[in-house]
């Protein structure tokens, strides 16, 4: 697979898979407004993934559509980070996963908006507006959890402790990513990491939350090695396209 196609898929898969996790929360929100806000983010992310899949399909020149890429690959050809596929548990967990990803997306797209690749530059610039709002919402929730009740603070800290090990992968460049660095298509993830780290420290300070001492990090998603959860998620996503491969929906 050409490096650029792989890199596009990393971006689209992160958005598509996280969007899917959020869409599973519909009708499960703690109150109606938050239920709708969650769906809204899910919609933004699928709206981000769609053009990138379409463009990747064009670049790939195999006669596939964007839908084929989203719906018809095998599990080891999805390249989303492990963080995005972690299953929903409570609202603190869902929001912490979102917060980690929103901070990443914010700084990542800010840098990607200077990419030499015109398409990625356009996608990043457009997404920034939405991602800025996502980050505002999730950081406000982190601060609210920390400053709310004992229960909310405990749940948020537990979510941070549990999800921390999936954050390192966000900044671990794939081979495709490194291959595109020199031509300024991809973004220096170390620079994004520094800004991410600073933002996390700032919000954790305001939220009275602690970074975990155990800094063990899990990798795999970007190279197609996923968690056990991924297969079940894809079984649902691909149910109709697998069962009725000839059908057009």
């Amino acid at each position: 697979m050409e490096a650029k196609v792989k890199y596009y898929l990393e971006i689209a898969d992160n958005a598509f898979i996280l969007s899917h996790r959020l869409s599973e929360c519909s009708s499960n929100g703690p109150f109606l407004e938050e239920d709708l806000a969650g769906t809204n983010v899910a919609l933004d992310l699928i709206g981000l993934a769609e053009p990138v899949y379409n463009e990747a399909a064009k670049l790939n020149k195999k006669g596939e559509s964007g839908d084929d890429l989203a719906y018809r690959r095998s599990e080891n050809n999805y390249f989303n980070c492990l963080l995005t596929e972690q299953p929903n548990s409570d609202f603190a967990f869902i929001m912490t996963r979102q917060f980690f990803m929103d901070v990443f997306n914010y700084y990542y797209f800010m840098d990607l908006a200077n990419s030499s690749d015109k398409f990625l530059k356009a996608v990043a610039s457009k997404s920034l507006k939405e991602v800025t709002y996502h980050l505002k919402r999730s950081s406000e929730w982190m601060i609210r959890f920390g400053g709310g009740t004992d229960v909310s603070k405990e749940k948020a800290q537990k979510a941070v402790d549990s999800l921390w090990k999936y954050t390192g992968e966000l900044f671990t460049a794939s081979e495709a990513d490194l291959a595109l660095r020199e031509s300024n298509v991809s973004v220096d993830l170390e620079a994004v990491r520094d800004k991410w780290d600073q933002k996390i420290s700032e919000i954790f300070y305001l939220a009275h939350l602690k970074k975990p001492e155990n800094d063990y990090q899990m990798l795999g998603g970007k190279s197609g090695v996923h968690s056990e959860y991924m297969g079940f998620m894809l079984a649902e996503i691909q149910f109709l396209t697998n069962k009725y491969p000839e059908a057009i929906w």
């Binding site: 709708l36 919609l43 989203a70 649902e236």
Partner: peptide
């Protein structure tokens, strides 16, 4: 309708379904 979000068969179908369900919630509001 939410019962089919996770199995919506295309990107477009999923977007429309999500947007529609969101509208219904908005009507509730």
């Amino acid at each position: 309708e939410g019962n089919w979000i996770s199995r919506a068969p295309s990107l477009r179908a999923k977007k429309i379904l999500l947007a529609k369900i969101q509208d219904e919630g908005g009507h509730g509001l």
